[in-house]
Amino acid sequence: MGKWLNRALRILLLAVYLVVAGKSAALAQKQEPVVDELVLLNWSDYMDPELLEEFQASTGAKVTQVYFETDEMRDDMLLGTNGAGYDLVVANGPGLTNYIRRGWLAPLTLREVPNLRHIETRWLEAFPEARGHAVPLFWGTTGIAYRKDLVSAPVTSWRQLFQPEEALRGKIVMIKSSADTIGMALKCLGYSANSTDPAQLAEVERLLKGQKPFVQTYSYVSLTEESSLVSGTTWMAMMYSGDALMLKDIDEQIAYVVPEEGGNLWVDYLGVMASSSKKELAARFINFLHEPKNMARLAQYVHYAPPNRAAQSLLPKEFLDDPVVYPPQETIGKSEFYQQLPPRTVKERNRIFSEILR
């Protein structure tokens, strides 16, 4: 009898344990639901985390970001996987054109992204190859950020960066990008940023070699309170317009200019990778960002101009009147989009930049 009771008691305790364990597992599952995930290849500080949280709350899908520092770095990351491993990518016009030719981007139409109807035609047509494959996200310029309180005079020319005064020795940061560094060096010399002329590129090489002793580093300044532009260890840097405004919010002594020779005018696009198994969800995310109220919020977060007409109508006057965000037509007229270049020119530019980085 005693053995029977002990056995019955053990069976009863086991049953109670299984019930409790089952309830605990169900509770844990309820508290930590399994969510979809989108992987976005993006610039750092180029997405409002609060918007990502709202997208997750409304869809149950988490957006995980993987960052790159330059266009070349993004290209290398995608080449390493043949375009796989990501659901979404942010890319400029020339990069996007290359990705489309490689078959890395899925088609995107008004049916998948209804908010395409808000995009201004000028940005849809800036790089015609992108139409039907990616959606314009923001546009801006490449210019010079500098410390007004440390340099001797206001910056107006690229020569002040590429042929700097002695006080700037070791105080300059250049973007670690052959497209930007060589492209803007060409502008400095009065040539097109897309020049294929070997003699002009030889001039650029001499110019960059002369500038090198003044360059603190070839990278990109951080956009935090610890930034070298904020601390004053950097006095001048090649930067993108909205990033310079982010730093100006921290320190009013930081100014930004597109030099009188003109700069680079760029458009960033957001596309869905052909290898993604979540294309519908990825397109839904793009459409979510282009909801006018969301795009207006994101524009103010990143300090860049949205190509979304409806979002512009929701932006404050001081944002719309900021000449860094919306440069005057004279500046735009002197600036250029980067274009796809012949392989021999790309090879020569890469050689020059590799020499400079040594």
Rank of each mutant, 00 (worst) to 15 (best):
G2N: 15
G2Q: 14
A8Y: 11
L9Y: 10
R10E: 11
I11H: 07
I11V: 15
A15D: 12
Y17N: 08
L18Y: 08
V19S: 03
A28N: 13
K30G: 04
K30L: 10
K30V: 09
L41M: 13
L41Q: 06
Y46D: 00
Y46I: 05
E53M: 08
F55C: 01
G60F: 12
A61W: 05
V63F: 09
E69P: 02
E72G: 09
M77D: 03
L78R: 00
L79A: 13
G80W: 13
T81E: 03
T81P: 00
Y86T: 04
Y86F: 15
D87E: 06
V89P: 01
V89L: 00
N92M: 02
P94T: 06
Y99E: 08
Y99W: 07
I100N: 06
G103A: 01
G103Y: 04
W104R: 05
A106H: 07
P114V: 05
P114H: 11
N115F: 07
H118P: 10
H118V: 06
I119D: 11
E120I: 13
R122N: 10
A126C: 01
A126P: 02
A130Q: 07
L137K: 10
I144Q: 06
I144M: 01
I144R: 04
R147Q: 05
K148I: 04
A153T: 04
T156Q: 03
Q160W: 04
K171V: 01
I172R: 02
M174T: 06
S178Y: 15
S178F: 12
K187A: 03
C188F: 00
L189M: 08
A199C: 00
Q200K: 03
L201V: 07
L201D: 12
A202S: 06
E205F: 05
Q216A: 14
T217L: 08
Y218K: 03
Y220L: 06
V221R: 08
L223S: 01
L223Q: 06
L223W: 01
S228M: 14
S231C: 09
G232V: 05
T233Q: 07
A237H: 02
G242W: 01
D243Q: 14
A244H: 00
M246T: 07
L247W: 01
K248S: 10
I250T: 04
E252T: 02
I254R: 02
Y256A: 05
G263V: 00
N264M: 10
L265S: 12
W266R: 03
V267P: 02
L270E: 11
M273L: 13
A274V: 12
S276N: 07
S276V: 00
E280D: 15
L281I: 12
L281Y: 09
A282P: 05
A283G: 15
A283R: 08
R284C: 08
F285N: 04
F288E: 05
R297A: 15
Q300D: 14
Y301T: 02
Y304I: 10
Q312P: 09
L314I: 09
P327F: 00
E336Y: 02
F337Y: 15
Y338S: 05
Q339S: 11
Q340A: 14
E348N: 06
R349K: 15
I352V: 15
E355W: 09
I356F: 10
